[in-house]
């Protein structure tokens, strides 16, 4: 197993020099599309609300990143390009690390540096020019450090990019479409199977609802916890499309609560999954495992 930082640098530079026109055009196009989506949202009734901003940031980067990632290693599939790519004096590991650097480091950082300023600017227009309000409050600017889901979203991004990289080595033709189908079938397959498992274990078709002890956590506008309490709650119907490592979410529990004269409402209640850690560990370990497979596949690639 050979590994040389110098050769990785050479590979990274080669990838850039050969594709710079394409990459610059691609970035401009992505920025244009994202700007249009942001503008479209500003003009909508809800305006550019926080969750839309989050969506633009994550779904946008994950989707465009997957397209991008699948182009990097697909050069090894084409007959003429592939001869050159495979016989270039660098080890399979170095070539994989180059793809890794592009799809998992350079791309997300570049995407963030281009799209986040657009969001900030869009948000400025949203509250100062169009005066959009949601529930009588101006839309808040999405902030990475405020979002409790940031970790999960980044993991999701890594999973998708990794799958795109693997798919482009695994499949010779229509690599992107095939890996997309693979990702969708694994992702939704897991959710469907999990729902079926949950349904087999707990009664989800309760007609009249049921009571249970729940922990209530009160948040203020800034998202900080101000009060915790254990009360008897009433559930109507669980929402069971959870992943194996998720807590189970319940909908329709929308009691008006009052604390210190302020009204609170809840849209969701979760049953905490006590054994989710092993599943989460599996998910996290799954990513490097997929990298390993990608590297091995690249090593064995023949034309």
């Amino acid at each position: 197993m050979q590994f040389s930082i110098h050769r990785i640098w050479l590979l990274t530079r080669k990838q850039w020099v050969e594709n710079q026109q394409l990459y610059i055009l691609g970035l401009l196009a992505t920025a244009g599309i994202m700007a249009a989506i942001i503008l479209f949202n500003i003009l909508s009734l809800r305006g550019l609300d926080t969750s839309t901003q989050q969506l633009i940031l994550y779904v946008g980067s994950t989707a465009s990143g997957a397209v991008f990632a699948s182009t990097i290693l697909s050069q090894f599939n084409e007959k003429i390009k592939g001869i050159q790519a495979l016989t270039l004096p660098a080890s399979a590991l170095e070539k994989f690390v180059m793809a890794f650097i592009y799809s998992l480091l350079i791309f997300p950082i570049t995407y963030f540096l281009i799209v986040y300023p657009l969001i900030v600017f869009g948000h400025y227009l949203d509250i100062h020019v169009k005066h959009n309000e949601l529930y009588y409050r101006p839309n808040r600017l999405y902030n990475l450090s405020d979002d409790s889901n940031t970790g999960e979203l980044i993991v999701t991004y890594f999973v998708m990019q990794t799958m795109a990289l693997l798919g482009s080595v695994l499949f010779k033709r229509y690599a992107f479409i095939k890996s997309l189908v693979l990702v969708i079938s694994i992702f939704f397959g897991a959710r469907v199977i999990n729902s079926i498992l949950i349904k087999s274990m707990i009664d989800t078709e309760v007609k009249s609802g049921f009571d249970a002890n729940v922990q209530e956590i009160y948040f203020n506008n800034a998202g900080a916890v101000i009060h915790k309490d254990i009360v008897k709650g009433h559930f109507v119907k669980p929402n069971v499309d959870a992943a194996p490592y998720d807590d189970i979410a319940f909908g329709y529990w929308n009691d008006k609560k009052n604390l210190d004269g302020i009204g609170y409402s809840a849209s969701q209640t979760k049953i905490h999954h006590p054994y989710n850690m092993p599943f989460l560990m599996l998910l996290y370990l799954g990513i490097p495992f997929l990298w390993l497979i990608t590297w091995l596949k690249l090593r064995e690639k023949q034309l």
Partner: peptide, 16 residues
């Protein structure tokens, strides 16, 4: 396909 090998064995394919 070690780098040292690829440095020393060069293929000029028919289609480039």
């Amino acid at each position: 396909r070690s780098p040292e090998f690829l440095q020393n064995v060069f293929l000029l394919p028919e289609e480039i």
